[in-house]
Amino acid sequence: MYSKTMELWVGVFVAAGLAALLMLALKVSNFTATSGESGYTISARFDDVAGLNLRAPVRMAGVRVGRVSSIYVDSDRFQAVVTMQIDDQYNNIPLDTTASIYTEGLLGAKYIGLEPGGDMEALKQGSEIIITQSSIILEKLIGQLFVKLTGGSD
């Protein structure tokens, strides 16, 4: 009943399972993107971060330079504090960089866009971005538009 071919098949079985796990790790999930990700964290305050998710990309000139690592409300100033993890290779981002929340396409996911300023000093671990622009909320925008349109016709 016990034979070498049986061992061989069990070997194939286990190897196929490991290969499946490897495929799920490397091809399907963000395992390669998150593992070994080192970087420094910076923070920024926004009046409104509606729609921004954890792990949302942080982009500069359209290129992903980091990700959002946490979002919470500052209970003193009632503003949203977003901390971002920026990859180590981008270590010369000027201190007076502007952070804005943009939407991918018209209805896509939110991301943070950085527009570099002209400061000689660079952002480092724990720095805070002072100039920020909150996310544009489509409903508010449409509401304002309606007010304007109806106001104009009168």
């Binding site: 790790a25 091809k27 399907v28 999930s29 963000n30 593992s35 792990r55």
Partner: peptide, 19 residues
């Protein structure tokens, strides 16, 4: 197909929880 998948599927939250 693969790019959207990698953007959304998380190793810890999705795959490890499935395991």
């Amino acid at each position: 197909y693969w790019g959207q998948m990698q953007n959304i599927v998380d190793w810890d939250d999705d795959i490890l929880n499935g395991v």
